[in-house]
Design a binder for these strands. Structure first.
Lengths: 248, 248
DNA sequence: CGTGTGCTTGATTTGTATCAACCTGAGTGG
DNA sequence: CCACTCAGGTTGATACAAATCAAGCACACG
């Protein structure tokens, strides 16, 4: 699985998989044409660091396919993941030129990049982009605040249940299958990455996954493939309001 | 100190204390005039709840004076503060009509409110407001992510040191006094509120404040008035990069 | 077949929560 | 004016959840 196996992507915005969710979602066809001119794709292998915290950033980008993480690291090596970047998520901050976090590909990732200058120019001229970016940023802020509750107040067991629930919910919303019955998810993260996301150690993550399995809240096939027989039960274990809170 | 003692505020935007920092910071005088027409002030007493989570929100607002908190509460009563609202901070989310968090005044607070509909209309017409709001939201997102690191990975002692450092830094940036020597801060929060912000119990907060005092990192006069003899020492205790990281 | 990465499980330690008592200062009312 | 109350805070003893230290398993890969 070397770099050369990754497809040399060249795609029309019209049939882009994230066309209706990304920062360009609201663009008219003429605006899209302008974006199309300044965009370029980049591929990253699983495990590769896309951006180092502190680095000069002269582009912004959307995740097209794959999953990346946003992490902060303290001097002594303690790490905290502060965001999970899924297809359509936006990377980079207009108006700032150095990265605040490490961005790492946890699967093979394809990004749709824009050089920062032209993108900022376009943003100031086409309100559709700025407006969509505001909307996406507000969503991320809500997600970050939900995560603050998890990090500050939830038990290890609740943290794991919450993570599984969130991943399952996202999968369901992406694939649009609203299965009443059991849900099936593939965890996109290693135990260590989960630990970094949840503010735990990898041992605790492992133990709590085992415990949830033992108690029948989830069942596992291999280390990544999870079946959720009863989603409401999982939400209870997560300590969330049972009403589901689909604010979207 | 009843409601009637609070001044009936009526102010020109031109000499508003948050004119250059709030959502209206970038507005031209004609835009400001329009805003002036749709704005109104509201006052809240210390301790009063400004907005309940889940409530219908038909206005957005800026904090003019005072301090408010944003908190989330779990069914069993566990609470996590997810934001501290200082003068110029924005409350409410254009494009959503129910509140996601409780907003509470921790001091007497004056808010500059706009009915949501007219504000959203103005936003779609004047890019200056939308642009400034994006900028503020991105800043809040960064702050939330910094807090995620604190909640997930810092020790109780580091959490307290971080909180004091952040409050001190903000005070210094507001009053523009760049004192080389000792800094003086008044904590705007009770021990319990600090605990809710830091993901601790109030007992642990109290103990760690005592410990930092005992070790000479801070000194206390009363329960709220803090003197910081050596700010770099405090940053070390906070576990932060010592370079200060003034990204602003 | 050996090596290594990701993961699990066990034993022990430790930092923080919990339970509980008491202190302090401000406000209240007799 | 003093006794009372009460909210906010401190401090101590103990319990417990998660971290740490440690061993070993399972599977992929050269």
């Amino acid at each position: 699985m070397s770099l050369h196996d990754l497809p040399a992507v060249h795609q029309e915005c019209g049939d882009c998989p994230i066309r209706h969710r990304a920062v360009c979602a609201r663009c008219e066809s003429d605006e899209l044409a302008r974006l199309e001119q300044i965009k370029y794709y980049r591929s990253y292998q699983s495990g590769q660091t896309i951006i180092w915290s502190g680095d000069r950033m002269d582009f912004v980008a959307s995740v097209v396919t794959g999953i990346a993480t946003l992490t902060q690291t303290m001097e002594d090596g303690r790490r905290q993941m502060v965001g999970l970047l899924l297809p359509s998520d936006f990377v980079g901050r207009p108006g700032r030129n150095s990265a605040a976090y490490d961005v790492t590909a946890t699967t093979d990732v394809v990004m749709c990049c824009f050089r920062k200058r032209p993108f900022e120019e376009m943003m100031s001229q086409t309100p559709h982009i700025a407006h969509r970016l505001l909307e996406m940023t507000l969503d991320e802020l809500d997600a970050a605040r939900e995560w603050m509750l998890l990090l500050g107040r939830k038990t290890a067991r609740e943290k794991i249940a919450s993570l599984v629930a969130i991943i399952a919910r996202r999968d369901a919303s992406l694939s649009l299958r609203r299965s009443k019955g059991e849900m099936v998810v593939d965890l996109p993260l290693t135990r260590e990455e989960m630990a970094d996301y949840l503010g735990l150690t990898l041992e605790t993550v492992s133990r709590q996954i085992s415990a949830l399995k033992r108690d029948g809240v989830i069942s596992l096939e291999g280390k990544r493939h999870v079946t959720i027989p009863d989603f409401d039960r999982l939400l209870e274990e997560a300590g969330d309001d049972t009403d589901g809170g689909l604010l979207i």
